[in-house]
Design a protein around this nucleic acid. Structure first.
Length: 566
RNA sequence: UGGGGUGUCGCCAAGUGGUAAGGCAGCGGGUUUUGGGUCCGCCAUUCGUAGGUUCGAAUCCUACCACCCCAGCCA
């Protein structure tokens, strides 16, 4: 046997860390952090970052990863989001031990660092309005103009800044700015704002503070205070790295290394928190955990497993080029995981009644069915067979196309774990002309779905005994957006235009085998020949069975039909 | 027209001067009591383009092209 190496994927960030370990740059420490802002729910893009940061910590001896809420903007942040984020990361299976931190815990320390910068004459209080600052910042090609307040004395700056903190000035009347270079080609270096006045209540510090640090000022300090070694963030912060470095260098404090990677994009979905919030507030979906949402809460409710998401994160890799990953890869990871462990069951989504005329009306047989052909340890269960059953409406056709091997008049098929049946008659509804029911005969020698006479019966259908079936509601989910790139909208319109009107289809008349009454909310299962489904976390009960489709099975027949249509 | 990035198969992505990994998707076939699964096979003479250096270049040099990010008191 060839030596099977359990090779974990590597990436450029691990390469940097490996080098740093080799040169003993951080004393052999590896310490990352995941720093969400609690202003929305986590989505699959965050999962990439979470898996990266926590995954790196796991893969180096003694590696650590902190969970740190970057809560520097009280007007956008809420405790509900803090709780959902904690819940989602735990669900993914990561552990920050006792290292749960909040940027707001460092406000006092940050304030003192700011005082220090002012004393070094590297920061000043600016009375300019937001508008004035914007106007004087210059443009991409023209340098900015220095603020008329830039040359205030250290003493005056100290006094003013302390008064800002005390609440002596109204919102927006003053800011603290770093004194760097208004002519820099990098706009972030044109005297960036460090503190703004916000008389707002913070979800953790209440009204203790009325000045709040900006991201650029705060983030490096947070990393430094926590002794982070590698501060991993997304590409758009590349331009901010010189500023990150500048603050830490001016202060002369511990200096982590910022490394940027490309965020995840998935086709058929949007990843912007702002836009996801809009879908929620404008009720295009039923909340942050709607199974159509790319949030972790949404994926969870749709039946995705944390394992499949971690596998996905591993497979997409980490690099610096803009990317749009195919949703099919995520589904592949999901199916691979669920195939081995989801228990099988039979559920007829769109029932068509079949009466087996030569089967005794009052007879019921108990048939044995395996719970999972991929796992013998999953055991077996009993299903009931009787003369009246339901099959899937689309498994019958009066005039079959080529290669069709499901039911049609005169055709014989196998009922999985049941008997062979042959269609003998089709009963139509007189008023609508629709097929009302089928009459069939069964072969008594085919019990269990097999005969020894060498007969070829290619088609196998799922079914459920009409007398024993229990009603279920099935929610079929499809892509939330019609287009691979939802942002590709016509003139003057936005992504809302591309919403898929059929992203949710509710089937209220499904017939399920009785064993499903024992399903637990959140339990994954495979409905034979249909796909993977999950008992809904919120709405499933013994009184009302509600299942969400997680994803369909690969459908070779659909592909054949498609290729024949063309 | 400033600054910062990125360009390797339809989609991700290895590769770091020695002659293009892997996964997904797709295609063909075997097997199959899920048209599921599984197994086998196929799928970049070429790495944004054009020059150059070299015995040898996706990797080095030069020029050009395309795309992304930045002008919040958001993160």
């Amino acid at each position: 046997m060839i030596n099977e190496k359990n090779e974990k994927s590597t990436n450029f960030i691990k390469a940097i860390i490996d080098k740093d370990i080799e040169s003993n740059k951080y004393n052999n420490r590896v310490h990352t952090r995941f720093p969400p802002e609690p202003n929305g729910y986590l989505h699959i893009g965050h999962a990439k970052s979470i898996c990266l940061n926590f995954g790196i910590a796991e893969s180096y001896p003694g590696g650590k990863c902190n969970l740190r809420f970057d809560d520097t903007n009280p007007v956008k942040e809420e405790e509900e989001y803090v709780n959902s984020i904690i819940n989602d990361i735990k669900w993914l299976g990561f552990d920050w031990e006792d290292r749960l931190f909040f940027a707001s815990d460092y406000f006092q320390q940050m304030y003192e660092y700011a005082l220090e910068l002012i004393k070094k004459n590297k920061a000043f209080v600016d009375d300019s309005s937001a508008e004035e600052i914007r106007l004087s910042r210059g443009t991409l090609t023209k340098p900015g103009i220095e603020s008329p307040y830039r040359n205030r004395t250290v003493v005056e700056n100290l006094d003013l800044f302390k008064k800002m903190k005390k609440g002596e000035f109204p919102d927006g009347s003053k800011v603290l700015r770093a004194k760097i270079d208004m002519a820099s080609g990098n706009i972030n270096m044109r005297d960036p704002v460090m503190y703004r006045i916000l008389h707002a209540s913070h979800h953790r510090t209440g009204n203790k503070w009325c000045i709040y640090p900006t991201y650029d000022w705060a983030h490096g300090l947070e990393d430094s205070i926590e002794s982070i070694t590698h501060s991993i963030c997304t590409l758009e912060f590349e331009d901010h790295r010189p500023l990150y470095d500048w603050f830490l260098d001016q202060l002369g404090i511990y200096h982590p290394q910022q490394i940027e990677f490309a965020r995840l994009n998935l086709n058929y979905t949007i990843m912007s928190k702002r836009k996801l919030l809009r879908l929620v507030t404008e009720k295009y979906v039923n909340g942050w955990d709607d199974p159509r949402m790319p949030t972790l809460a949404g994926f969870r409710r749709k039946g995705f497993t944390p394992e499949s998401i971690r596998d996905f994160a591993e497979r997409i890799g980490v690099a610096k080029s803009d990317n749009v990953v195919d949703y099919a890869l995520l589904e592949h990871c999901l199916r691979e995981d669920l195939n081995t462990r989801a228990l099988r069951a039979m559920v007829v989504l769109n029932p068509l009644k079949v009466i087996i005329e030569n089967y005794p009306e009052d007879k019921v047989e108990e048939m044995e069915a395996e719970n999972n052909p991929e796992d013998q340890n999953a055991g077996k269960r009993i299903i009931h067979f009787s003369n009246e059953i339901y099959i899937e409406r689309e498994d019958f056709i009066t005039d079959p196309p080529k290669k069709w091997f499901r039911l049609s008049p005169g055709m014989e098929v196998r009922l999985k774990h049941g008997y062979y049946i042959t269609c003998t008659n089709v009963i139509y509804d007189k008023s609508s002309g629709e097929i009302k029911e089928l009459r069939c005969k069964y072969d008594p020698n085919s019990k269990g779905g097999w005969t020894d006479d060498g007969r070829k019966v290619k088609g196998t259908l799922h079914w459920v005994s009409a007398k024993h079936a229990i009603d279920a509601e099935i929610r079929l989910y499809d892509h939330l957006f019609l287009k691979e790139n939802p942002e590709d909208a016509s003139e003057g319109k936005d992504f809302i235009e591309n919403l898929n009107p059929d992203s949710l289809q509710i089937l209220k008349n499904a017939k399920a085998e009785p064993s499903l009454i024992n399903a637990k909310p959140g339990q994954n299962c495979q409905f034979l020949r249909q796909g993977y489904f999950v008992a809904d976390l919120k709405d499933f009960s013994k009184e009302k069975l509600v299942f969400n489709r997680t994803t369909g099975l690969r459908d070779t027949w659909a592909r054949i039909v498609r290729s024949q249509d063309v």
